[in-house]
Write a protein that binds this DNA or RNA. Structure first.
Lengths: 216, 216
DNA sequence: CAATGTGAACAGCTTCACAGCC
DNA sequence: GGCTGTGAAGCTGTTCACATTG
């Protein structure tokens, strides 16, 4: 029953089952530590980091400890090397190219969003279905025809951001899967059906707003 | 110990403690049922709804049952009345006016976003700090000076959407709290410190993207 | 002494099984 | 037969206490 001393009791068992919630928090840590790195901060304790992020210190320690012992007792976590570790864990070392589908207002905002760079993301191409938008320049990029999504395979882009209306989302998702995309950030209020091997994260802005009045 | 037969044993105890996760899913149900209502669908079973939303039927039944017995055994849930019930539960009956802070690309996209209406939300005013943007028209609205945020109190707007850069988010949040705002949807990659009485929901798009490579 | 790393207790949420009803 | 409503079981994630280390 002791995972650390007896590996692989059950084929289905992950060697260390890391909670999804822990994974969800890792980018938070990465961003906070990256900022500290810029400020030339050498080390930070779980207590200080918890204060910044409004979490509990043991939570942070447990989360990080799933991946090994990054910290030094009595001192805290070394900022720079922990940043590198987390990047490796999240597979964010090196640039991650993503395709953006939808060149409407939201897509345009996403294309210009500066916040992706902390994680090494780069919007590498933009697609739309509307003839009016195809060929248009957005920043340094030219909007491509969504009918050519299959070119993503050649370009080895395996990440997509879906910023299209809900009605179009499912068919776009299918085209993306066909084009070899392995991860989709869905910004439309829709529930995508994709093969299990493809990971979808949906952000529904209106739904997030929808809970606020309840708590007020 | 039995809550249903013995109310108010402990002052601190909520009469029925409803899981936050249940609340988070309620807008999903509301949206799905609203669409069914438009399609003139009379009733739906938990199984059908679960299929649409990629959830388990018992989850949906349990969630809805926290608020009473909406369904009919052997039949399912009456669409129209359940929609009304959920609106009441989430305090979404009637129009909810929200202020939008930030008239940049993201703010502009949010201002035009059609998805809020299902929940009865309406962006009632837009603010920005940049002199260039103040006075500009966005749709039918004119961008106001963020220095005048305190007018929200008079207008009884208690909901805000924060679409400003991370560096400006905390000070904006404080101004909003000062102006009597009770709920904030924070779209910036920052961790807001607000009084406990104010509810904040943060959506960090880059962070959501940040987990995808791990799962790929 | 200060802080991490971690088994164990605890809390919260999900899933199940089935009684009750249409 | 079909479907809801719900206590109970099971699972996942969080918090705690403390041994351990610099």
């Amino acid at each position: 029953m002791n995972v650390s001393t007896n590996i692989k009791i059950d084929e289905d068992m992950k060697y260390h089952k890391i909670p999804d919630e822990t994974i969800r928090r890792m980018p938070m840590y990465l961003r906070a530590l990256s900022l500290l790195e810029q400020d030339a901060c050498q080390t930070i304790s779980s207590r200080q980091l918890a204060q910044q992020l409004h979490l509990n210190p043991p939570q942070i320690r447990k989360d990080l400890s799933y991946f090994g012992a990054f910290g030094k007792r009595g001192i805290g976590y070394p900022v720079q090397s922990t940043v590198q570790q987390i990047r490796k864990i999240l597979k964010l070392d090196g640039t991650q190219s993503a395709a953006l589908i939808g060149a409407g207002r939201l897509g345009t905002a996403i294309a210009a969003y500066p916040g992706f760079s902390v994680f090494g993301f780069e919007v590498a191409s933009i697609f739309d279905i509307a003839p009016k938008k195809i060929g248009k320049k957005i920043g340094a990029m030219t909007v491509e025809d969504a009918a050519d999504l299959d070119t993503l395979k050649k370009r080895k882009i395996r990440l997509a951001i879906l910023a299209v209306p809900a009605e179009a989302a499912q068919s776009c998702a299918e085209a993306l899967v066909q084009a070899g995309v392995k991860g989709i950030l869905n910004l439309s209020p829709s529930c995508l059906a994709v093969p299990r091997r493809v990971k979808v994260v949906t952000i529904d802005i209106a739904m997030a707003l929808g809970v606020l009045p309840y708590y007020m």
